[in-house]
Amino acid sequence: MTSDGPGDLVEINDKMNSREYVDILENGFIPSYRIIYPEGPVNFVQDNSAVHRAHIVRNYFAQNSYNVIAWPAKSPDLNLIGNLWRIMVNKWETGEQLPNSRNNLNRHCRGIWESLRGTDVCRNLVGSMQRRLQARIDAEGGYIKY
């Protein structure tokens, strides 16, 4: 996601590995990002999962001169994409019959994801980062409620 909205939603296997992650970056995220930002640096904010820290991923970033912003471990309070997922869950129609297949679930998720385009949801989340970071500094690195 960027402040201009969510990127492409990519379906993954039950357990993504580092090679699949690089493939998603190369064939999903970067092309989507470059439509919005054709020039300039690419900055990544990632959590500290093993997939994100894998050698193949670090090499991919280095070879493409992508910036990876240092990020504190165990910081869900600073995770914007986690907030975006929560917004998606809140938009889920609770009175509606649950999707009865993986394809229907995928279609339903994509519908909700697409409904976020053209809204200020992502811009507001990104805009909240300065306040979140200041709150983390004020808490001397401790957890904050975001």
Rank of each mutant, 00 (worst) to 15 (best):
V45R: 12
E93W: 00
A50F: 15
E114W: 03
F61N: 08
L25P: 05
N79I: 04
Q63R: 14
S128T: 07
N27A: 12
E114I: 03
V68E: 14
N104Q: 15
N100C: 05
P31T: 09
C122D: 05
A54T: 08
N83R: 09
P38Q: 03
P72C: 07
F44P: 04
G118N: 02
V57F: 11
Y60K: 02
Q46L: 13
I56C: 13
F61E: 11
R102Y: 14
V42I: 15
Q134N: 13
E96T: 08
R107E: 15
N59D: 15
I36Q: 13
N83I: 01
A139R: 01
Q63M: 12
G118D: 00
L80D: 03
S75L: 06
P72Q: 05
R58C: 07
H108S: 11
N106W: 11
Y146C: 12
R86L: 11
S115P: 04
A50E: 15
R136T: 12
A70L: 07
I56S: 14
L80R: 05
W113P: 02
N48M: 08
F29N: 03
N43E: 10
G127F: 04
H108Q: 07
V57P: 05
L98W: 06
P41G: 14
V22W: 04
F61W: 15
D77V: 04
G141M: 03
N79S: 10
Q97I: 08
